[in-house]
Design a protein around this nucleic acid. Sequence first.
DNA 1: GATGGGTATGTTTTT
DNA 2: CATACCCATC
Length: 721
Amino acid sequence: MISMRALEGLNPAQLRAATHLTGPALVVAGAGSGKTKTVVARIAYLISEQGVPADQILAVTFTNKAADELKGRVRAAVSNSQDLWVSTFHTAGVRILRRYGEAIGLKRDFVIYDDDDQLDVIKDVLGDLSGMADVNPRYLRAVFDRAKCLGQGPSQLLAQGEAWIVGQPKEKVAEVYRIYQQRLARAGALDFGDLLTETVRLLKEDPRVRELVCARTQFVHVDEYQDTNRVQYELIRLLAASGNLMVVGDPDQSIYRFRGADLRNILDFEADYPGAVTYRLEDNYRSSAQVLQLANRLIVHNQDRLEKTLRPVKPAGEPVQYYLARDHQEEAEFVLSQFTLCHALGFALSDMAVLYRTNAQSRVLEEAFLRGGMPARVVGGVGFYERREVKDLLAYARLAVNPDDDVAFRRIIGRPRRGIGDQATSRLAERAARERISLLAAARSAAGWLPRGAEKLSAFCELMDTFSEAASLYEPAGLLSLILDASGYRQMLLTEGQEGQDRLENLEELIRAAEEWSAAHEGGVFDFLDQTALLAQVDGGHRRDVPSEPAVTLMTLHNAKGLEFKVVAIVGLEEGLLPSRNSLMEPGGLEEERRLFYVGITRAMERLLLAGAESRMLYGHTQPSERSRFLDELGGDLIELRPYEKAGPAPAASAPRPQARAAEALSGGFHGGERVRHPRFGEGTVLAVKGLGDRQEVVVSFPEVGNKSLLARYANLVRLG
DNA sequence: GATGGGTATGTTTTT
DNA sequence: CATACCCATC
């Protein structure tokens, strides 16, 4: 057989999947089994060996980061792959809707509402409706999102009376949903859910558009197929009209049920697509055998899965440690001390990550790393594009390109203060509702009917006219600069002391990001705004092109999917946290939490640390925590560390200094990472230390005989180096 | 119309 | 504890 560059370095299973030619295919790819490599190879094979034009191939991912990586790797493998279409579900939706959306009555220059904007609209609707004062707008947002995941509009929501509407008459909920959709339509806005549902509607209703789009989607690939929801399933079905559909996924890594992910999509793939061929990638190249064994032991506790095995390729490696800390502070100090050790052993900062269930857990960790002088970066959480000043400036730009964007109008009308307050705004809103026009349009006619404040409003309208004009002439950065100065926003920040300074710096950063964006992309202000709306912080934040200084990564388990690190710490292994309290209420919730933990474990290549605390701060109060049930499912081989145990009650003085306590406990006598020699077992590395003084127990990894737990006092260990 | 302090409320997870 | 929102006062 001729050796083909596109297929070099694949194992037999990967090779079979990569050379799949036409018809539907399911690739069940366990964690670390080289699924991206396989997809890259398959695309390269199609282009360079089978002569498929790159512009007939589509690959869909969930995050921009995954899309970028795939694109980059294909580019590296095949030269003529410029026209390859790789994007996230949402970006693909935007692209199709911008181009063809007018066929179903969408404005060409629609704006995208993020979840904050959604909330503003819902609150607004609730304010206008009687008898709904006590409804939580966040709850309604969740209901609407969920309905959209299932492709249900207001009437379908009402008809199907979904069981997940609790505490409210579904008529009322559907009514708010209907008005919410109206407001969005009037504002020329689509929310995240609409980007998918509207794309599906367009492709269903307009055969001509479908044909045009499908010409570019003769070969379709979907990554992380286990996380697709109903609408995404339908979208893929429409795009893959050719039948050449390859989906890749792992049912054990489905963790987005709350967003509508339906495990059945992957479990039933063979039934949905008759003639489908299934390929299984079962060799794990990522994790040490010990880590993988733990992962396997955990996941067999799930019922809802496709039977599959995952074999380690790597040797046993280091044992997995579990540390029970007194509280969340000490938990953080433990991670810090272990990472410091690993760093000393030669692991780069970028090789290490701390994973947690909730964003709220990041703060204590961040502070601990800061105190310890180890650079750490929180990925996700409140992102750059969610900061108030950034959203304000972008709202100006949005209103400039789309004068109907009422959320943007409300957001900026009082920033900076320009003498237009609640009174004038609510009169504007009345008028706008009556005449079915936007707030800005109402403001334009204010001179005729608003006795007070009309002049100020007309000045604002003129300002916006200037910006609208600039929006079509300038690049994004130019427009944003103009806005920053001409709106008085810069002036306002300058009067706000240090905080204003910081915010101003963020805005200058934003403008710089816009410049960089223009240097690397075609497109105008619209396209830049799309980008800011769709880019998650995990995707690399606002400075993706600038290599940032090396740092330890802190992020949620969800954000860690698809990534790998040599050293991984998973913290908060407590009942109520992992598994999370809320998940236990829902059927299937526990299995989802187990998969989440599974995803976390399988991120680790060489070393895995687990930790939990006996008590934790919740809403400002310290509460006792119970050890996570998942720890008991892992079975033996877990090195349990509890350094302060039996060392007597901690001296009062050490209470504010948990750092000292953890460090002392870990370093008495021997400490982890040290090289030692044993008279019988030879040379080895200290992995862990338990207890203090005479009772100190040392776990040592010996290349010849594996891991041994020894009493330091009798073992005659000799320190090396 | 702006400002500030008080209180209710919330933490799963994200494109 | 930290933010978001309400109301009273300037």
